[in-house]
């Protein structure tokens, strides 16, 4: 299977790999997927409590190149957005940006899921 240049770029130079303190009040963590499916994504956001803007985002992903690229792209898009704006990110936008083929669409769905889980974890902590 041939990968798009953007997938290869994100795979070779992943943005925002790493971890934030998941115990921190202003950090939301989402872990989605399962090892037996061949994909596990951990995505974290750090939110500025005054402005509600996501100031940092980190990921770690076990999965194919498209899964890594989808989560890397997601962290790029999350930074600088408000929580409400972050909720608008759709998996189809990831598919288009990375030119994912049909068999890899589930990678983008997983990335969207990871974003939702990270946001709801943050919101639960800050009810």
């Amino acid at each position: 299977m041939a990968y798009s240049e953007k997938v290869i770029d994100h795979y070779e130079n992943p943005r925002n790999v790493g971890a934030l303190d998941k115990a921190a009040q202003n950090v939301g963590t989402g872990v989605v997927g399962a090892p037996e499916c061949g994909d596990v994504m951990k995505l974290q956001i750090q939110v500025n409590e005054d402005t509600g803007v996501i100031e940092d985002a980190k990921f770690k992903t076990f999965g194919c190149g498209s899964a890594i690229a989808s989560s890397s792209l997601a962290t790029e898009w999350l930074k600088g957005r408000t929580i409400e704006q972050a909720k608008e990110i759709k998996n189809t936008e990831i598919v288009n940006e990375l030119s994912l083929p049909p068999v890899k669409i589930h990678c983008s769905v997983l990335a969207e899921d990871a974003i939702r889980h990270a946001i709801s974890d943050y919101e639960d902590k800050n009810k």
Partner: peptide, 11 residues
């Protein structure tokens, strides 16, 4: 373990 085969081949 802990890395996925296809992404490994990509590298």
């Amino acid at each position: 373990p802990y890395v996925e085969g296809e992404s490994l081949m990509m590298a």
